[in-house]
Nucleic acid binder design. Sequence first.
DNA 1: CCGGCGATGGTCT
DNA 2: GACCATCGCCGGC
Length: 191
Amino acid sequence: VARSFFDRDAATVARALLGCGLVRRAEDGALLGCRIVETEAYVGPRDRASHSRMGRTARNGVMFGPPGHAYVFQIYGLHHCVNAVTGPGTAPTAVLVRAAEPMRIGAAVRHSTTGPGNLCRALGIDRALDGVDLCDAASPLWVTPRAKRPRRIEVGPRIGVDYAGEWAAAPLRFWEAESPFVSGGRRTRRA
DNA sequence: CCGGCGATGGTCT
DNA sequence: GACCATCGCCGGC
């Protein structure tokens, strides 16, 4: 998608990303693709849940750069999370991609794509991809336009940010209502 | 079905 | 030295 897609506030982009494709080209050229079904917006330094709340550091540097790039970090020593840097301009905002449904683009996706850590494992995303341009189909990771529009979008509080006080309750998590790939806490079993 | 907890290491104070 | 935008196992009910 165009850079202007990402050059909007994080909550707007978080909604707009639902239904978009996330495509990974591995080093051997193989393609893996999925369709985004769950996101979270991190809306700037005043947002006590955002990594930009303590200003620019070595880790979060790309959040302070132009929109449309990937911000990838490692968490709990084991897992990675991918974000799309958003706007307006170089405002340190981003959207965490929390879940996706596999799409048959190239090779079959082999692992779970539910939850940010699982999604990164399934697509082979790690800190080596921090800063890559999501607007360029020549990148190792990029975003493609919606093929299928989400039928219904639901909104709720973000996950795993209980330390953030009132910001923990802010309605900044977005997901496709009917998707079985959404992470959102424990799921009641369904057919 | 549900809550608790350990793994595991980079990052920041 | 504490914290952490997670995950999946385990045990209790």
